[in-house]
């Protein structure tokens, strides 16, 4: 039993890293723009397909491919923000953003079906199916790389937010959009760039998701979005580091439940979310706490 538990914890921590990579863009976008990006799941799949295209057609290593997919997704994110999100104003902005991002999701999904078809594909590389033996466990390389990438990217976003001028602009916009405008922050520029960064980070999450799973197709994003939303709500909307911690916590909990009764894992996942919110409605690292960092 001890071995099973330890394996479940390891699985949860490593899997949490992968989910953090997918969720961190979602929470960053919410933190700055106050919108829920329903298209995040499809963005993950878009990132996976971009890696797939580079891997199959240019034979680029998956991680090297990120040097292309991350900037490409950044540009896509900026375009989406300018075309679909920026025009939303007024008291209905947040609710309308749900519809706008849903429209974006449908458009991207349709384009992916058009270009790649409905069949499932996976991302392949020599290390994808291999693992390293450590302390009696076989740890998949792709999960280890994914976890390391998550830590590095979360740290990089943290540094950007708290150690750069642009980060100050972002935090000012997060705290009070009108006040930020009054002190000279170009909030439209900040919003576009932040949306772009959020989507760019998702490229990395998409690549790891595509390489670690059993296959994905254009529809696979819809199974993800509810879990990603649950994770960032648990973390506290807008909390970057919280997304990593919450992902590891929830995936570990799910892995432990899997030992005894896999069919309950989803129910326990959402029950834990409800329980945490009952105790701490702002999430583990709620908005106020996150913004005061």
């Amino acid at each position: 039993m001890g071995t099973e538990l330890t394996r479940a914890v390891i699985n949860g921590i490593l899997g949490g890293g992968i989910y953090a990579l997918m969720a961190v863009g979602l929470t960053l976008i919410f933190g700055v723009l106050d919108i829920i990006n329903i298209a995040q799941g499809v963005m993950v799949i878009l990132g996976a397909y971009l890696s797939y295209a580079l891997s199959v057609h240019l034979h680029l290593d998956l991680f090297l491919g990120l040097l292309i997919t991350v900037p490409a997704m950044f540009v896509i994110g900026v375009i989406i923000q300018v075309a679909f999100i920026r025009p939303l104003h007024g008291s209905e902005r947040t609710s309308m953003s749900l519809l706008a991002s849903y429209a974006v999701a449908i458009i991207i999904e349709g384009a992916l079906y058009l270009f790649f078809g409905p069949n499932y594909v996976t991302l392949n590389a020599p290390y994808v199916n291999k693992s390293i033996s450590m302390l009696g466990f076989h740890l998949p390389y792709i999960d280890l790389y994914g976890f390391a990438l998550a830590v590095v990217l979360v740290a990089a976003i943290y540094v950007m937010l708290y150690r750069t001028t642009f980060g100050r602009s972002i935090r000012a916009t997060m705290q009070d959009r009108t006040a930020a405008m009054l002190v000279g922050v170009d909030v439209n520029r900040v919003a576009a760039l932040t949306y772009g960064i959020g989507v760019a980070v998702t490229a990395a999450g998409g690549m790891i998701f595509g390489a670690s799973g059993g296959g994905f197709n254009p529809n696979s994003g819809y199974d993800l979005i509810s879990r990603l939303l649950a994770l960032i709500i648990l973390a506290g909307l807008g909390s970057i580091g919280g997304a990593l911690v919450a992902s590891m916590f929830m995936l570990t909990l799910e892995s432990i439940v899997d030992i005894w009764q896999p069919n309950w894992s989803i129910a326990v996942f959402y029950a834990a979310l409800v329980l945490v919110l009952l105790i701490k409605p702002t999430g583990l690292f709620g908005r106020q706490a996150a913004r005061a960092q």
Binding site: N11, D258, P262, N263, S265
Partner: peptide, 17 residues
């Protein structure tokens, strides 16, 4: 002999067991 949810994005925990 266990039943796992049909629509989860990650089957690794069940497969590892």
């Amino acid at each position: 002999s266990k039943i796992f949810p049909a629509e989860v994005p990650d089957y690794a925990p069940a497969a590892d067991n």
